[in-house]
Amino acid sequence: GIDPFTGEAIAKFNFNGDTQVEMSFRKGERITLLRQVDENWYEGRIPGTSRQGIFPITYVDVIKRPL
């Protein structure tokens, strides 16, 4: 089901994660935001896939912030 505490964002740019914990994505992908890790990073996942990880806040347009 849908978790009411998650947020939502759209990727503004392609992001290629450097490490296992970073999640790569392509511009235009819809991302579920799980939490804000710190002032620069979100943790999120791509709905319908097993992809999950952290990524820079500046790479996405936030539609709804996670609670």
Rank of each mutant, 00 (worst) to 15 (best):
I2G: 14
I2E: 15
I2S: 14
I2W: 13
I2F: 14
D3S: 10
D3T: 10
D3V: 13
D3R: 07
P4I: 13
P4C: 15
P4S: 14
P4E: 13
F5W: 15
F5Y: 14
F5D: 13
F5Q: 15
T6I: 07
T6M: 07
T6K: 09
G7I: 08
G7S: 08
G7R: 08
G7Q: 09
E8P: 04
E8Y: 12
E8K: 08
E8R: 07
E8N: 07
A9C: 12
A9E: 01
I10N: 03
I10D: 02
I10P: 01
I10Q: 05
A11H: 00
A11W: 01
A11C: 04
A11L: 01
F13I: 11
F13E: 14
N14R: 05
N14W: 05
N14V: 05
F15I: 01
F15K: 01
F15D: 06
N16D: 14
N16H: 12
N16G: 07
N16Y: 13
N16Q: 12
N16C: 15
G17E: 03
G17I: 03
G17T: 06
D18H: 13
D18T: 13
T19V: 08
T19K: 11
T19Y: 08
Q20M: 11
Q20I: 14
Q20Y: 12
Q20E: 14
Q20W: 12
V21Y: 14
V21L: 13
E22H: 12
E22P: 02
M23F: 08
M23W: 03
M23D: 01
M23S: 01
S24D: 08
S24L: 02
S24I: 03
F25Q: 01
F25C: 02
F25V: 04
F25I: 07
R26E: 14
K27S: 09
K27G: 05
K27I: 14
K27L: 07
G28K: 03
G28T: 02
G28V: 01
G28Q: 03
E29D: 06
E29V: 03
E29W: 03
R30P: 06
R30C: 10
R30K: 12
R30I: 11
I31F: 01
I31P: 00
L33Y: 02
L33P: 01
L34H: 04
R35T: 10
R35V: 07
R35P: 01
Q36I: 09
Q36R: 08
V37Y: 08
V37D: 02
V37K: 05
V37L: 13
D38R: 07
E39L: 09
E39S: 10
N40P: 03
N40W: 13
N40Y: 15
W41S: 06
Y42T: 03
Y42A: 07
E43A: 07
G44F: 01
G44E: 00
G44M: 01
G44Y: 01
R45I: 10
I46H: 02
I46K: 02
I46V: 09
P47H: 10
P47T: 11
P47C: 08
P47Y: 09
G48A: 06
G48T: 05
G48V: 02
G48F: 08
G48Y: 07
T49N: 03
T49M: 03
T49H: 03
S50N: 13
S50G: 12
S50C: 14
S50T: 13
Q52K: 12
Q52L: 07
G53D: 00
I54H: 06
I54Y: 09
I54R: 08
I54D: 01
F55N: 00
F55M: 02
P56R: 03
P56C: 03
P56S: 02
P56N: 03
I57A: 14
I57P: 05
T58L: 10
T58G: 12
Y59D: 03
Y59S: 09
Y59I: 05
Y59N: 05
Y59F: 12
V60Y: 00
D61M: 12
D61H: 15
D61K: 14
I63L: 10
R65I: 15
R65V: 14
R65C: 15
R65Q: 15
R65E: 15
P66K: 06
P66F: 05
P66R: 06
P66V: 07
L67R: 15
